[in-house]
Amino acid sequence: MTHLVVKDLTAGYGDARVLHGVGLTVGEGEICAILGPNGAGKTTLLRALSGMIRARGTVTLGGADLTGHPPDTLARQGVAHVPEGRGTFMPLTVEENLRLGAYVRRRGPELEADLDRIHGYFPVLKTRLKQAAGSLSGGEQQMLAIGRALMSRPRLLLLDEPSLGLAPLVTRELFRIVQAINAEERTTVVVVEQNAHLALGIAQQAHVLETGRIVLSGTAEEIRADEQVAQSYLGYRV
């Protein structure tokens, strides 16, 4: 069953158009990987999906129209965006960061339960609750960013290069957790990633974006088997 439907999406900055009619669908509870070279518009695509920049076209999530709404409205509709560079609130503590994640849900007894849930996925955060988020390591900050996004109980989780700047071992661990989150909470995930191996390892389907257009779509296996992709993103010939 399709959950996220994107049709003919165009977006850009000022006069410069970056996305030229992007279309894709993601099934409910699936992970979708977006691959592509630097400057292809991957980050721009996620920004358009979370409303950070204005976009034209249609975006629906579970049948509800999301097109053209401001980001805070989309956050209330269940879209959580872990932005490029993680968007950590540096001077605030880890706990304050996490509580901000639940900002759209107002308060409630579930909030504490959610904190426990996040600590389950990322035990290291529990030992750092009162520490300034800016003092976390890069990997910990990425975990915090994902944990914070989960605090809003999203229906759609957008991850922008979670592996950026992390050691391979940490990256693998992070992807394992993303997979676990997806499996346990049935959250639909769109992940932009340079590390195509890892992304294709957890995704059901993938799209290759080049200069603002999707040039290749398929299941993770199909994309992995593609000669062009293998050369450009996996670093070997099939």
């Binding site: 950070m52 401001p70 965006h81 932005p83 901000l100 914070r148 809003s152």
Partner: peptide, 9 residues
């Protein structure tokens, strides 16, 4: 972080 605040609702 204005951008991150915005996407957090």
């Amino acid at each position: 972080n204005e951008g991150a605040a915005e996407v957090m609702g």
